[in-house]
Each structure stands twice: as structure tokens, then as C-alpha cells.
Amino acid sequence: MLFSPYITKPDSVSKIMLQVLFALIPGIAIYVWFYGPAILVSLLLASLTALSTEALMLKLRERPIAPFLKDNSALLTAWLLALSIPPLAPWWLIVVGTMFAIAIAKHLYGGLGSNPFNPAMIGYAVLIISFPSQMTHWLAPGGLGSAGLDFQSQLNYIFRGALPDGLTLDGVTMATPLDTLKTQLHMNGQMKSILEMPIYGRLAGVGSEWVSLGFLLGGIYLYARRIIGWHIPAIFLITLFAISGVFHLMDPARYAGPLFQWFSGASMLGAFFILTDPITSPTTPKGRMIFAFGAAILTFLIRVYGGFPDGVAFATLLMNICVPLIDAWTQPAVFGRKDER
């Protein structure tokens, strides 16, 4: 208590991060409902890896460990990464990804607050480039695969790489709805007939559309609690809607509709949880809108024309690069100086 102000709002980084984790729960719950508890194993593995990597890095960097471990930021990175990769993946995949995210993408850049790129998305990018095949085997939602996989078998696969007798990996997993669409279109499939495939539901993929809705719900909660602003999610979703809508109207046979884009892949997770990461997004309102706009355009382009199943991660990383420039360009006018510009 040396300088004013002597009072502070009872708010903390730790509480903010906790709120974000809390807001992920509806999406995770729906995930478990459709795909079984494998995702919980991923989340747990990622969390443990993240916390131990964080502690190790803090020790190596000679920083106090307890206050930083308690800030929950490593947990959030872990959860976001776990939610971005297939739940039915060998255990080392999530461990390697999380370690890379925390050690390289976060701590080598200076730790909390100093990383220019979203660590979870760096982890995702590293995994999808290094282990593309493991990264495309997604669990089929309940009832869709040739056979359901109970929890015991899921654990068996994750840790021992063994599936029950008579089952192949292709039998229990599938490509994501976005990936499937792209592949089918590539093979000159017709949009209408593709979307009639059993993996597609009302809006997008069976199951995944509901998970997206869960994340939307969590996002609305975050906005209501003013943990995030409206600029990034709103502009991202509106832009994605608009651009996919325009393309869809021009050629409905080749371009999926805007709602499909909204509820596929990581659109909702990205709009509310990934792009809104304060450390790697712009600080000015105008800057945030530009950032979200760019991210939406890039997401769409990568989804439609790129070689990867989803575009949110790379769009986020590409826009992360632009953040300092966007911030410098979009400095708002200050009190009493609005006529000066």
C-alpha cells in the first residue's frame, strides 16, 4: 500500500480464466453425450501435461511457480487444444501438442502475456503438420460408426493403441463433416447428395452441430459476464455468414450454406474462445473488428480452397501476426481530441 489507488476490484487473471473454462463445460458435456468419455481423458491428459510443463518452464526461467500455476491460463490452453484434436488419438499426441504449446509457443516467448501466437493453435498446427493421419481420425458420433466403442476400449486404444478384435480404426472413426464435404466435392459429388449422407444432421455434422451450439451457449455466457467483448465473435460470425452466404447463393452446388459454416468445425469455439484470447488479439475495438473480419475470410478460404480440414487455427495464427500492426493503425481518439483526426 504505497501508491493510490489503495483499493482494487476483486478480479484476477485466475478468475477470468476460470470463467472461460467454466464456459467450455456445456460444449464438453454435449461432446461426451455424443462421442463418449474419451474427450475427458484427452482433457485430463492435456491438463496434467500443461501444468507440469508450465511448472518446469517457470522453474527453468526462475519465475515464481505458484502464482503462475494458479492463473489457470495453462489449463485453458490445454483444454482448447484438447477440444481441437480427435479424442480417440494415441496419448502421446495430446501430450506432445500441449508440451509444444506451453514450452515453445508460450514460455519461450516470455510466458503469460508475451506470446504473440495463440499457444493452443500453435500446438494444433504442429500436430496437424507432423501427424496428419492421427489428426484426421475423429470418433464417429454415437450410432454412426460401424460399431460403438465403450470407454474401456477407448482407453485401451488411447494408451495401448489396441482396438478390440475385429475392429479397425476406420470402423470407429471418420473424417470430420467439413473434411468429408471437401473430399466429396473434390470427387465431384453434388452438395445436395453429400449433405444427405448419414453424418450430416440438420445444420452440419450430426453431433458436432450440437457441440457447436454448446460452445455458442458458453460464449453468450462469457459475453454476459463481460469476460469477452462482442466485437470479435459478432464480426467473425457475421463475416463468415456473409461470405459463405454469397458463395452459396452464387453456386449452391459447390458451396455449403452459412449455417453449415457456423456449426461446423471450430467456428463457434474459435469465435468465442480462441480468437477472443486477449493476449493474441488486438486491444482496440476497431482493431478487434478488423481482426475478426480477417479471421473469418481466411477461415472460409482455407475451408473451401485450402488443404486442411478446418481453417480456424490457421486463420487465427495468420491474424495473430497482424495484431501489432492492427493495434498501431486503429488507435482510438482520446477524450477531447476527437476532432484532431
Binding site: 501508491f3 519465475r63 515464481p64 505458484a66 502464482p67
Partner: peptide, 11 residues
């Protein structure tokens, strides 16, 4: 210049 530590004493 504000000098503060991330309070190692509290850890």
C-alpha cells in the same frame, strides 16, 4: 520506477 516482485515470499 515502480519496483515490485511477483512476490516470491507468497509462493
Amino acid at each position: 520506477y515502480p519496483v515490485y516482485a511477483i512476490m516470491p515470499s507468497q509462493t
